[in-house]
């Protein structure tokens, strides 16, 4: 009767992402980093640091934050906003985890590639 909206894409298994780690999803609009926190939450944000484009997926994940590997900017995974003294933000993408699979809402991506 109800159908999942078509913009949700099954990306892979939760266990494919290391705990307190990240993996990358390649898209036409650039890479998206999928993070898995210590509490097993999954967040997706653009994999480009607002500072100088560092690959956020390679940063150290602590709590629901990640530290950019290039110059230590700290971003909130949930909001995509830089924390502390720093300014800047990255786009976030909705995710959900079901039965150990990660689903990504590609609505924003589609908008991007359509633009």
């Amino acid at each position: 009767m109800t159908q999942a909206p078509s913009s949700w894409i099954d990306i892979g298994a939760l266990s494919d992402i290391p705990l307190r780690g990240a993996r990358v999803v390649r898209t036409q609009g650039g890479c998206i980093a999928l993070f898995r926190t210590v509490g097993d939450q999954v967040f997706a944000i653009d994999d480009r640091c607002p500072h100088k484009g560092g690959p956020l997926s390679e940063g150290i994940v602590h709590g629901t934050r990640v530290t950019c590997p290039l110059h230590n900017l700290v971003l909130d995974l949930e909001t995509g906003l830089a924390l502390g003294e720093d300014a800047g933000s990255v786009a976030t993408h909705p995710t959900r985890v079901e039965d150990g699979r990660i689903w990504l809402d590609a609505a924003l991506l589609e908008k991007r590639s359509a633009a």
Binding site: I9, I11, G12, D16, I17, R23, V24, V25, R26, T27, Q28, C31, L34, A106, L109, E110, S113
Partner: peptide, 14 residues
Amino acid sequence: AAWAPLADLTLEAA
């Protein structure tokens, strides 16, 4: 496998 992207959506979106 762990060193490659988890998924590649460039094809689907095209």
